[in-house]
């Protein structure tokens, strides 16, 4: 190989990567037209260049995201919730598991009492109201409510994050039989209903219904919400939480 060839070799990758100025590009074009070795090299480099496209440019950012502490807290909460669910499957009493789940959901001790449903739930274990303030305080407007239905035994723990004219919901639902097709229904003060999501209750190893932790949203302004209910597909209400 001539020394000119070596010089060209170093231009091939920048050429394939599209980083050469026009003069250098023309030089490579002219040379490759008459050099088999460089054409072969270019073809191989192009293959590698195509592979680079499978990695997004964001892959090279390091560190934690900005202003996303709530994301971390939500993720940690989910981890705690799922560990709780695991323990429940290992046949801890339902009551203790629900209480722990409730404690984990009420970030920052943001407990906005359970409303009338909760106060009627005398037979059920009392919800833990000593939620340890283990995390940052949620932003203003985030509300948490919970309710246990004394008849069905279903429990709904809800966290509502207001958006512009609508609302994001995170719901933990326990105590519903396996196989039930459920809906999370948001009811506003004029009685209008929005379905924020639906799911089918899974079967726990014990044979009962699995608890579900789900995220949903509804086109209802947070301040207009009167209640949030869990219903099955026949309209049976398992539990309703007054907001």
């Amino acid at each position: 190989m001539s020394s000119a060839q070596d010089g060209f070799a170093e231009l091939l990758a920048p050429y394939v990567l599209g980083a050469l100025d026009e003069d250098d590009q023309r030089e490579v074009d002219a040379h490759a037209a008459s050099c088999d070795e460089c054409r072969k090299e270019l073809a191989e480099l192009r293959e590698m260049e195509a592979m680079l496209g499978t990695v997004p440019p964001e892959a090279f950012l390091d560190g934690p995201p900005d202003d996303a502490d709530l994301l971390l807290q939500r993720t940690l909460r989910q981890v705690r919730d799922e560990r709780t669910a695991d323990r429940r499957r290992r046949s801890l009493t339902l009551g203790a598991a629900v209480a722990a789940s409730a404690a984990a959901v009420f970030l920052g001790g943001y407990l906005a009492g359970g409303g009338s449903s909760d106060s009627q739930a005398a037979p059920a274990p009392p919800p833990t109201t000593t939620g340890a303030p283990v995390t940052a305080t949620p932003p203003a407007g985030v509300r948490a409510v919970s309710a246990t239905d004394p008849v069905t035994g279903a429990r709904l723990t809800l966290r509502m994050t207001p958006a512009a004219g609508w609302v994001r919901l995170n719901a933990a639902v326990t105590g519903i039989p396996a196989g039930e097709r459920c809906r999370l229904v948001v009811v506003d003060r004029s009685g209008h209903r929005e379905v924020a999501g639906s799911w089918v209750v899974g079967r726990a190893p014990s044979g009962g219904g699995k608890g579900a932790d789900l995220d949903g949203s509804a086109a209802t302004a947070a301040q207009d919400i009167a209640s949030v209910a869990v219903e099955n597909d026949h309209g049976k209400t398992y539990v309703s939480a007054s907001v």
Binding site: L61, G63, P65, A68, L71, L72, T130, A132
Partner: peptide, 30 residues
């Protein structure tokens, strides 16, 4: 009871925190 649960979950939470600290910016941007 809460404190003992907190101890049990320390390693889980540490793992999630470590992932968030190292990769969170890339993941969220993407």
């Amino acid at each position: 009871q809460l404190r003992s649960r907190a101890r049990q979950s320390t390693s889980d939470e540490a793992l999630v925190r470590a992932l968030y600290e190292e990769h969170g910016r890339a993941l969220l941007a993407y």
